[in-house]
Design a protein around this nucleic acid. Structure first.
Ligand SMILES: [Mn+2]
Ligand SMILES: [Mn+2]
Ligand SMILES: [Mn+2]
Ligand SMILES: [Mn+2]
Lengths: 218, 218
DNA sequence: AAAATAATTTAGTCTTGCCTAAATTATTAT
DNA sequence: ATAATAATTTAGGCAAGACTAAATTATTTT
């Protein structure tokens, strides 16, 4: 049985290792968990001791197969609870992350699997992220950003990179919701902002926003 | 914000103070929480400091109004989650307590109230215990035990005193479930065991079991 | 009303998880 | 290749929550 802090460190290492194939740095974990590098170092030693990570001094941490499965089981719970909160309790997609951060630590495999069934075995959470299976297996697909599309191309909005409450509310306001089709109409010269077509309306979004929207080409 | 341990102590004091109007003893709390008296003493000082209890050295603890409301809000969450687990996820009534012990500490009033609504504002948990309202108000009704009934009297089974998994499974096996009517037919001389009528079947239960069944007279 | 026993508190430790400041190692710039 | 800078680890502490053993207070027995 892992402690709350151990679980959070594992999760953090998992998420950070998606954007870099070498070891995850002490500082990046500290930054991610709002803690200090020295605290992380101690935790890395402990996780290494438990064979959850490979830790080489001064060269960061990498999840072992066990560590990866363990992290994904926590992420599975997180995402299932997010689905529950949105689908069953009518929370908005920008309100659920904080609560799921707590719920993901509830220990009961039976609970997780019954919840999964109750929700009808969802494949993705409210932010478009895939839900790992009970064994901790996840299919990670390479992600295309809206900013990667060329003029005239159309994509389906399938996920967000930045899932901060602020960005999610920004999308709500512009009626950009998961599953909708977005066509790139034109790119502004001087600030690279994009004119896009959405259903029957057109609007303009910044490159920054565009690079936070995951899409699949149509 | 209270720590997990503080919340558990408050809850324990609340439950223990139902069977005694004077202060709740250090030892009884320690016993209830599977910890040691010395640990409890330290916690009592802290809770007293926070005005959640009145603590007089060597004379135990009593909840203040604030402490009582706080305890009841935790108990509200516990019981709502138990209803959720049984009604929505198809857990058996003997499986939910342990999980609810974890879920009761999730912090989000909004979540609690949305859960309440989702469950259609239940008044009692799966063990027949009343669910406090959002403000921490609860209606405590004096409880009659099956063993208090006279021969020939009938009662409706409305709650369990001992809600241990073992006792709940025992009741399941005998098809004694919440809401059913029980008629006391006869009492055995030599061991006080009771012959009872339940629907169309008769069965015999010990005094010990009978004193663990709460009923309302019909 | 003492004496014996039981309950409770205090004193002193331990572990976990966190911190700051100092030392060490890695990386980058010259 | 060396020097400067940045990242990381180590050393030393602190608070929370637990424990054991010893001291103190309450309760029960004689
Ligand atoms: Mn989330
Ligand atoms: Mn999510
Ligand atoms: Mn319970
Ligand atoms: Mn219950």
């Amino acid at each position: 049985m892992l402690s709350l802090s151990e679980e959070n460190h594992l999760k953090s290492i998992f998420h950070l290792s998606l954007n870099s194939d070498s070891g995850v740095s002490t500082n990046s974990i500290a930054n991610n968990l709002n803690t200090k590098a020295s605290s992380v170092t101690e935790m890395l030693k402990k996780l290494s001791e438990k064979s959850l990570i490979v830790y080489i001094k001064y060269h960061g941490a990498q999840l072992t197969e066990l560590g990866r499965k363990t992290a994904l089981k926590i992420i599975r719970k997180h995402r299932l609870w997010e689905v529950f909160l949105v689908e069953k309790l009518d929370f908005k997609w920008d309100e659920v992350h904080e609560i799921a951060e707590q719920l993901e630590h509830i220990q009961s495999e039976k609970l997780t699997n019954k919840l999964d069934k109750f929700l009808n075995f969802p494949t993705h959470d409210p932010h478009g992220d895939p839900i790992p299976n009970p064994a901790g297996f996840i299919k990670i697909t390479p992600k295309l950003k809206l900013s990667d599309l060329g003029i005239g191309e159309t994509g389906k909005f399938v996920g967000v990179k930045d899932s901060s409450s602020a960005f999610l509310k920004y999308l709500d306001k512009r009626k950009i919701s998961l599953g909708c089709n977005i066509k790139v109409l034109h790119q502004e010269e001087f600030d690279q902002s994009l004119h896009i077509g959405l259903d029957d309306t057109n609007l303009t979004i910044s490159v920054k926003s565009a690079s936070n929207l995951y899409i699949t080409k149509i």
